[in-house]
Amino acid sequence: MVAIYIDHLYKSFTFSRGWGKHRKQTNVVAVDRISLNIPCGQAIAFIGPNGAGKSTTIKMLTGILHPTAGKAMVLGYVPWKDRQSLARRIGVVFGQRSQLWYHLPPRDTLELLARIYDLEPKVFRQRRDSLVERFGLNEFWSTPVRKLSLGQRMRAEVAASLLHEPQILFLDEPTIGLDVLAQQKLRNLICEWNQQEGTTVFLTSHDTGDIERVAQRVVVINHGQIMLDAPVSELRSRYLNEKILSVKFHTPIYEFPTLQGVRQLEVMDFGLKLEINTRLIPIEQVISQILQIGSVADVAIEDPPLDAVIAHIYNQPASEGLSL
């Protein structure tokens, strides 16, 4: 079953400047005829640089914005026509905006949300207890939100958005500003929820750690268009034709020959770090060259960091779609 269906969704904004005869209108295309299908239960990372059209897309999918053209269905609803009905079936977390009452403990916000979503008292108690246990909210359950750490607050935010058992969870930069441990904890919780409860996760983030840990699929949007739609597992290995080769030697090396498709990233007395373009030169050929210049103690072949892959995709011009 399809959770989110998008067909040639298009949104442009018109800005007016000046008065009378000098009034000028500028049309800015935010989302440019994107099409996408997301099956139920999938965790998707929807990423792109600032101003790429992510927020506009999310706002259309949650019913806040009307598109200029195109179609979209979220759980069978047309979001901008059935916003309130859809709101009962989706959860939304904005990393930079809180839904918790600042001066009250998380407990009180959950009590209020239970009323907003019309939960039966018994159902509410069961869900609340389950969320408190799974998200470890007990330690700060009765502490006013203003006294919580950012990590604790974000756990409470996500738990609050799951209270009404949404079928889709929209997460907008949920780990922004969190320390490494808090990030890991939150990612694990989201991942568990996706896998165990089957909740569809629609994640936007600039943090590649979120994408790798939480998402199964990544969609890159830039200039309002989808640049890439691929499984996260294949993103690095298949998209970039580059490998990072690190070598350690038993004895000092003095020179490494210049080869087409090989870039020396680091040269030390007992080591070498190379970037190899596998389209131009087979990796075996580089290794055989290395074996000739010294006695090798250790070799490691790595994919480039995901950050580099994503940066490369962001740099593509609008007209060049990418596919795997």
Binding site: T62, G63, I64, A87, V92, F94
Partner: peptide
């Protein structure tokens, strides 16, 4: 101005 309005608009209220 801050866009916090969106937090309220994604709720059934």
């Amino acid at each position: 101005r801050t866009g916090a309005l969106t937090v309220q608009l994604v709720r059934p209220i």
